[in-house]
């Protein structure tokens, strides 16, 4: 279809304004992180980028955040997904309450959850562990709405009742039906959910900062107080890492589910 002059003019004006808004800060991060600092260097320098490796708190924080993300994914795989399938298969009465429970975090901002959960984490750090990895518990609840959306769409698209019936007739146990038959068929939904889990855990600041846990974001903020250039370099690096993740996870229709927070 040939576009008229007016449409094309409008289109390019909008694209340039928005692109300028979104891309200039990203370029500024690159510019800022390669600026000379101290007295030794002139012109461009990658000293800030090299100094990323010398941050004592950073690597433990990254590995802890990645472990937390892995635990959140395990909770999705072995607790949330099986429960969703169970409810679909065996307890249709509970579908609506289950949905409401999963969408509840949408109505409760993270800053409010942290107020309510502070006593629980005080108890956990005294009696169980002081490790930030315990945050996996509350993180897995924060992503419930997104996990639920991608799961229920996937479960509705497949006729899991017939699958379950066929498998049971052939002698499969219910565990095998859930993990061996149904979960492989809704793989895409699960992969989407896992991607959100990684993005959320690596980007979470509110809860960990208030509860005094040194997660990835909290450490970046801490570096920023002493050395801005390095903090900007780390931020840009982690942004590139997330884009890289997005590119290597080969799923179709990911864009729709990442933020499809449709409660209706």
């Amino acid at each position: 279809m040939k576009q008229s002059m007016g449409v094309r003019l409008w289109r390019w004006t909008i694209i340039s304004v928005v692109a300028l808004y979104l891309l200039v800060p990203l370029y500024a991060m690159f510019d800022f992180s390669t600026k000379p600092f101290g007295f030794a260097d002139k012109g461009r320098t990658f000293r800030a980028w090299k100094m990323i490796t010398e941050q004592p708190d950073l690597w433990p924080a990254i590995s802890r955040s990645l472990i937390t993300a892995a635990i959140v994914m395990a909770l999705i795989l072995f607790l949330i997904v099986p429960t969703a399938i169970w409810v679909h298969l065996k307890l249709p009465v509970l579908r609506r309450p289950f949905e409401l429970l999963c969408l509840l975090p949408l109505a409760i901002p993270a800053i409010v959850i942290v107020v309510g959960i502070a006593p629980l984490y005080r108890w956990i750090s005294i009696n169980i562990s002081e490790s930030p990895i315990t945050l996996a518990g509350v993180y897995s609840m924060l992503i419930l709405p997104y996990t639920y959306r991608s799961l229920s769409a996937a479960l509705d698209a497949v006729d899991i009742h017939t699958l379950a019936e066929a498998a049971t007739t052939l002698g499969a146990t219910i565990t095998r039906v859930i993990f061996g038959i149904i979960m492989p068929t809704i793989k895409t939904g699960i992969v989407n959910g896992s991607f959100i889990a990684i993005a959320l855990v690596l980007g979470e600041y509110t809860i960990s900062n208030i509860l005094n846990f040194k997660t990835f974001q909290v450490v970046i903020a801490q570096i920023g107080r002493t050395n801005g250039n390095v903090a900007v370099a780390v931020s840009l690096a982690s942004l590139l890492f997330v884009i890289f993740l997005l590119l290597i996870i080969p799923t179709k229709k990911r864009q729709g589910t990442v933020l499809d927070v449709d409660v209706a």
Binding site: S33, Y205, Q217, G224, G228, V232, S235
Partner: peptide, 12 residues
């Protein structure tokens, strides 16, 4: 959002 966004705009 968050920490990294703040740094991006401070750099700008």
């Amino acid at each position: 959002g968050g920490v990294m966004l703040t740094f991006a705009f401070l750099a700008t």
